[in-house]
Every structure is written in C-alpha cells, then in structure tokens.
C-alpha cells in the first residue's frame, strides 16, 4: 500500500503507539456493547469506535451513553466522566446514582471494561491501584469493582515498564486489584489472550498480533512461557 498508515491499521513493523493500541481495542469491541473505559489511556478507545457501532459508554459516576469531551459552551461541570473531565450527552443517555452504577458492574451487565495496569499475572490477576511504596497514597476508585464485575476485562498497557521489567509476570508483586479477572491484555508489542490461556497444562500465555518483536525475543524477555495463537 502506498497510502500512509493511519491509526486504524496496526503498525506491523514496530511497536504500537497508544493510538494504534486504542484502535486495535476499538476494533475488538462488539457492536452494541456496553463498555466502561478506565481513566487515562483507555479513554482513547472512545475516539476509535466505529461510527454506527452502537457501543454505549458507561461512566462510574452515574451515566450511560456519554459523548466526546465537551469544549467551549458545551462545558458543564455537572456533566463529567470518571476522570472528572467535562463530557457531552448523546441521545439515549441515562443518569443514575452511584449504587446503581456499581450494581451494573457487579451484576454482570457491562460487556467490556478496559483498564490500565501496573502488572498482570499469567492467570489474569490484576494489579493496577497501588504501587505499595511506603510514601504512596493508596487510591482504588472503581478499579476493584470493574475488575470483578465486567463480563470481559481487558487491560491496555505497555508490556515493559520504563526500567525494562516485564508487566506480564508469573505472580504480581504489587498489591492486587482482583484475582484471575483479566481476559485479555493489549500491549504495544502484542495482544495476550489470558482467558484462552487459563488452565493450559504448560502454563503458557497465548499471544497474537506481535508488533515489532519476534516470538523468540518475547519469550526471552518474559518470565512466563508464550505461544503464538
């Protein structure tokens, strides 16, 4: 192809940047799904949802079907997302109180949530709320409720931390958010199918869409066995 690649196509040649990653996640969200996007990078997924997909976004502070970030005269401080950023209201939106909002999560009504993470273990344990550092102020928000509540829990993160340590690990060393709850991990270097991997006799995690890394190199840098799926 001679046309320049856009964020809608995965960069096969190199690691996926956050926009390519958000686009890859958006492509996997089923049409019409009810979805919660965690604060930070997961909110980028909203920008890549196909028009007409019918995906409905849930925000923990009590709203379904919010729209893009509000600008100018549309800014209303009574209408914000979980990141406390002013957003807009789409036709078909609904407001509800906090107990209902979290009942939707725990009750299995949300199809997908996308969260960031510090670490994910091979069996899907999630650590994303606290580094455990003595001077850190713990703050969990809705992460634990989402982790055990959404039907599909997807993580969006870089595969390696800034210091080069892997974030997919045999066992999480950071304080846990939820046990065996992550179904899939989208990373810059590939997508890990943890739900499909759970219970494998060889303990390996299944990876697809390798980007900018070979299976051999990936295997060498992770402490868990990986197989191509």
């Amino acid at each position: 192809m001679s046309t320049p690649s856009t964020s809608s196509a995965p960069a096969e040649a190199g690691p996926r940047d956050k926009h390519a990653l958000a686009a890859a996640i958006a492509r996997d969200v089923p049409d019409g799904a009810y979805v919660n996007l965690g604060i930070g990078q997961p909110t980028l997924v909203a920008e890549h949802l196909r028009e007409g997909s019918g995906v409905v976004l849930h925000t923990e502070n009590g709203m379904l079907n919010f729209g893009p970030v509000a600008t100018g005269d549309d800014v209303d401080l009574d209408l914000t997302n979980a990141g406390k950023i002013p957003v807009t209201e789409l036709p078909g939106a609904a407001y509800f109180h906090h107990a209902d909002s979290f009942a939707m999560m725990r009750g299995g009504h949300l199809d997908v949530c996308v969260l960031g993470a510090f670490q994910v273990s091979a069996n899907g344990d999630l650590a994303n709320w606290h580094t455990g550092a003595p001077d850190a102020i713990p703050a969990v928000g809705g992460a634990m409720d989402l982790a055990i509540g959404a039907e599909q829990v997807w993580v969006m993160m870089t595969l390696f931390a800034k210091d080069g340590t892997a974030k997919i690990v045999p066992t999480c060393t950071y304080p846990l958010t939820g046990l065996a709850c992550v179904d899939r991990v989208y990373t810059d270097l590939g997508t890990f199918e943890l739900a499909a991997s759970r219970g494998r006799a060889d303990g390996a995690v299944v990876v697809r869409d390798l980007s900018g890394i070979s299976l051999e190199e990936l295997g060498g840098r992770l402490d868990v066995p990986v197989v191509l799926g």
Binding site: E60, H97, H98, A99, S101, F102, A103, M105, R106, V140, G141, G142, A143, M144, D145, I148, G149, G178, L179
Partner: peptide, 25 residues
C-alpha cells in the same frame, strides 16, 4: 472500593445488616 462505599451506605439506608460482596476478594 467505590462500589462498596456506595453499597455500604445503601445497606445502611435500607436496613441491611451486612452483605456478601465479591469486590476486592
């Protein structure tokens, strides 16, 4: 956890003595 914060207050207001919740296990 945010949902427990809401539900624990909901329980107080609804006369529920305590409840079993999967969050944070």
């Amino acid at each position: 956890p945010q949902g427990n914060l809401a539900e624990r207050m909901r329980a107080a207001g609804a006369g529920i003595g305590a409840f079993f919740c999967p969050t944070g296990v």
